[in-house]
Design a protein around this nucleic acid. Structure first.
Length: 421
DNA sequence: CGACATGATTATGG
DNA sequence: CCATAATCATGTCG
C-alpha cells in the first residue's frame, strides 16, 4: 500500500521527465549530429529518475498540479487523444474474444461433481459422520474408510475455497488499484473506458489462469485421494478364515457345478459378512484358478471334503435327516446349506461304494485322513473330489470325460447329474 | 525383499 | 448381462 503513492509519484515524475525528451527524440530522428546535447538530456532524465524516490509526495503533487495547470496542457492532451484514437484501433483489432476455456470447464465440472466446489454441505466432519451413518449396514469398516475419505475431501475443499477466496480478493484489490491508477492517469493522458475495460480483463485473465492452476492441483489431489481411498483394489483385505472356510466348503461340495444361485450367494454373503458381489468375485476367481491348476488344489479339496463329511456325519447322527438328494442349487441350499452341501458329496460317495449315506461319510473321512501324504491303493479321496465336472473344453458342464489329474481308472462320480440352473 | 496368494477390475465373447 | 480369462494391486509368508 505504501507503493501506491510512490507509483503515481514516479509516473508523474517520469512523465515530466519525458516531456522535455520529446523534442529531443524528434531532433534525433531528423538526423541530428550533436550527440553531446542529447547525452546531456538523457543524463538529466536519468538524474530525475534517480531522484524520484527522494522527492517528497507534496513536491510530486505540486509538480502534477503544475502540469495540469500548464497552459499548453489541454492542447497537448488533445494531441495525445488524437494519436491514441489512431493507435487504439489497431490494438483493438488485434484482440478478439476468446471462448471459455474447455480445459477450465472440464476442471470446473469435475470439482463440482466431486463436491469440492459448489454448495457447502454442512461442513466436513458433520457431513462425513452423516454419510458414515447413512451408509451403515454393510461393512462397518467400509463406512469408516469412507468417512475418512470424506474428511480428507472436505479438507481439500476447505483449502481450495480459502485459496480461491484469496485469489478473488487479490484480484479485486489489484483491479481496483489499477483502475484507480488509470483514472488518476486519465487526467494527464487519454484513457478510454474501453482501455480500462481491456486492462481489467487482462488482469482477470491473469488471475483466472492462476485459479486454473489451483483448480488443476485440486483436481489432482482429489484424484489421488480417490485412487487411494475409493479404489477398492488398494484396500483389499483378505477375507477372514471363517469366511474362506465357508466359501471353500460350498465350492468343494458343489465342485461339479460351482455356480451358486443368487439366493445361495446371498446366504453365503450373509454368513461370511461380505457382499454378494464379493461372493461372485470369489467364485469367479476360485473357478478359474481351480481349473488352471487342479493339482494345486487337491489337498484343499480333500480337506474340505473331509470337513463337509464330518459336518454331515454329525448332523445326520443327530438329526436323522440330511439325506436329501435334492440338487444343491435348489432352494433348499438357501435355507440350510450345510446339509445341502453334503448332498453333492454324498451322491458321489454313494455312487462309489454303494453304502448308506452315513457309512459313506465315515468312509470318506477315514480315507481322507489316512492318506494325507500319499495315495493308497484304489480310489483315493483326492480322486473322488477331483474335477468331475470339467469337460475337455474346460467348461464346467457335467461331462463324462474326467480330465488330467484323475487316474484313468474309470472316472469317479460320473453319476453326477447335477442339473439345476 | 521377493515370491506367491488373493480380492478386484477389465476385456471379451456368447 | 453373465462367465471367463487376464491383469492389477495388495497381503502375507519365509
Amino acid at each position: 500500500m505504501d507503493e501506491q503513492p510512490r507509483l503515481m509519484h514516479s509516473h508523474a515524475g517520469v512523465g515530466m521527465a519525458g516531456h522535455p525528451g520529446l523534442p529531443q527524440h524528434m531532433q534525433e530522428s531528423s538526423g541530428g549530429t550533436d550527440g553531446d546535447g542529447r547525452k546531456q538530456d538523457i543524463g538529466d532524465i536519468l538524474q530525475q529518475i534517480m531522484t524520484i524516490t527522494d522527492q517528497s509526495l507534496d513536491e510530486a503533487q505540486a509538480r502534477k498540479h503544475a502540469l495540469n495547470c500548464h497552459r499548453m496542457k489541454p492542447a497537448l492532451f488533445n494531441v495525445l487523444c488524437e494519436i491514441k484514437e489512431k493507435t487504439v484501433l489497431s490494438i483493438r483489432g488485434a484482440q478478439e474474444e476468446e471462448p471459455p476455456d474447455p480445459q477450465l470447464m472440464r476442471l470446473d465440472n469435475m470439482l463440482l461433481a466431486e463436491g469440492v466446489s459448489g454448495p457447502e454441505k454442512g461442513g466436513g466432519s458433520a457431513a462425513a459422520a452423516a454419510a458414515a451413518a447413512a451408509s451403515g449396514g454393510v461393512g462397518a469398516d467400509n463406512s469408516a474408510e469412507h468417512s475418512d475419505y470424506r474428511a480428507k475431501l472436505s479438507q481439500i475443499r476447505q483449502i481450495y475455497h480459502t485459496e480461491l477466496e484469496k485469489y478473488e480478493q487479490a484480484c479485486n484489490e489489484f483491479t481496483t488499484h489499477v483502475m484507480n491508477l488509470l483514472r488518476e492517469q486519465s487526467r494527464t493522458r487519454p484513457i478510454s473506458p474501453k482501455e480500462i475495460e481491456r486492462m481489467v480483463s487482462i488482469i482477470h485473465r491473469k488471475f483466472s489462469s492462476i485459479q486454473m492452476q489451483l483448480k488443476q492441483s485440486t483436481c489432482e489431489a482429489v484424484m489421488i485421494l480417490r485412487s487411494r481411498f475409493l479404489d477398492a483394489r488398494r484396500k483389499r483385505r483378505n477375507f477372514n478364515k471363517q469366511a474362506t472356510e465357508i466359501l471353500n466348503e460350498y465350492f468343494y461340495s458343489h465342485l461339479s457345478n460351482p455356480y451358486p444361485s443368487e439366493e445361495a450367494k446371498e446366504e453365503l454373503a450373509k454368513k461370511c459378512s461380505i457382499t454378494v458381489a464379493q461372493v461372485s468375485n470369489w467364485f469367479g476367481n476360485k473357478r478359474i484358478r481351480y481349473k488352471k491348476n487342479i493339482g494345486k488344489f487337491q489337498e484343499e479339496a480333500n480337506m474340505y471334503a473331509a470337513k463337509t463329511a464330518v459336518n454331515a456325519a454329525s448332523v445326520s447322527a443327530h438329526g436323522s435327516q440330511a439325506n436329501s438328494p435334492s440338487t444343491p442349487n435348489s432352494a433348499g441350499s438357501a435355507t440350510s446349506f450345510n446339509m445341502s452341501n453334503s448332498g453333492d458329496l454324498f451322491m458321489s460317495v454313494q455312487s462309489l461304494n454303494g453304502d448308506s449315506y452315513q457309512g459313506a461319510q465315515v468312509d470318506t473321512l477315514r480315507h481322507v485322513i489316512s492318506q494325507t501324504g500319499g495315495y493308497s491303493d484304489g480310489l483315493t479321496a483326492s480322486q473322488m473330489y477331483s474335477p468331475q465336472g470339467i469337460n475337455a473344453n474346460g467348461g464346467w458342464q457335467d461331462a463324462p470325460t474326467p480330465s488330467s489329474v484323475t487316474s484313468p481308472t474309470e472316472g469317479p462320480g460320473s453319476v453326477h447329474s447335477d442339473t439345476s440352473n
